Computed example of a mutant assay.
Amino acid sequence: MAHLHRQRKGHCMKVTWAYDRGDHRNNHEVDLTDPAALEALLHEIHEAREPVAVTIFSKSADDPDELPPGLQIGLGHPTHAFAVHIADDGDYLSDPTAQAPSEAVSFDVGGVPTEYPAEYLRIRPETAIRAAATFLKTGGQPPHVPDASDR
Rank of each mutant, 00 (worst) to 15 (best):
V109K: 02
Y120A: 11
Y116H: 11
A118I: 03
D89E: 02
A132W: 01
A40I: 03
I45H: 01
T97F: 06
A104N: 07
S58R: 13
L38K: 04
F107R: 06
I45N: 02
I86K: 08
F107P: 04
E44T: 15
T55Y: 09
I73H: 00
S102V: 13
P117C: 03
A40L: 11
A87F: 08
G111I: 03
G74W: 00
E126C: 02
T55M: 10
I123N: 07
P117F: 11
S60Q: 15
Y120M: 08
H85A: 06
R21T: 08
E119L: 01
G110Q: 15
P125H: 01
E39N: 13
D31P: 02
L38G: 04
F107Q: 07
V112F: 12
A100S: 15
T33A: 10
E126Y: 05
L93D: 00
H24F: 15
T79D: 06
E115Q: 10
H46Q: 05
E103K: 15
T55H: 12
P51R: 00
P113E: 11
E119V: 02
A98I: 08
L38R: 01
E126A: 14
A104T: 12
R124Y: 00
A48S: 15
A83E: 03
E115M: 06
L41M: 11
D88P: 11
E39I: 07
S58W: 09
S58N: 14
T79L: 07
P51K: 07
A36W: 03
L67M: 15
V112L: 08
T114M: 12
L93K: 04
Y116R: 06
L32W: 01
D108L: 10
P101C: 07
L121I: 05
S60R: 15
D31H: 13
F82K: 03
R21Q: 14
H24D: 14
D95K: 06
E39L: 14
T97W: 13
V52Q: 07
G76A: 00
G22F: 01
K137T: 10
A48M: 10
D31Y: 07
T33K: 09
R49S: 05
L75V: 00
P35L: 11
A87V: 06
L93G: 00
G74R: 04
R130D: 07
D31K: 13
A132L: 06
F82W: 00
Y120N: 10
A118K: 10
T55S: 14
V54Q: 02
T134V: 15
G111C: 12
S94W: 04
L32I: 13
T55F: 05
H85P: 04
V52F: 06
A61F: 08
D65G: 07
E50L: 15
H77N: 09
T138G: 01
R25F: 12
A40E: 14
R49L: 07
S102K: 14
L67Q: 14
H28E: 13
A61M: 12
E44Y: 10
R49I: 02
D63W: 11
D34I: 11
D65C: 02
S94F: 03
H77K: 08
A40T: 12
I45P: 00
L136F: 10
A83V: 05
A61R: 14
S58G: 15
P64L: 14
P68V: 09
L75K: 02
A133D: 03
T33Y: 09
I56V: 15
E126W: 03
D89K: 04
T55E: 13
R21G: 09
A48R: 08
D34F: 08
V54W: 00
D65Q: 14
F82Q: 02
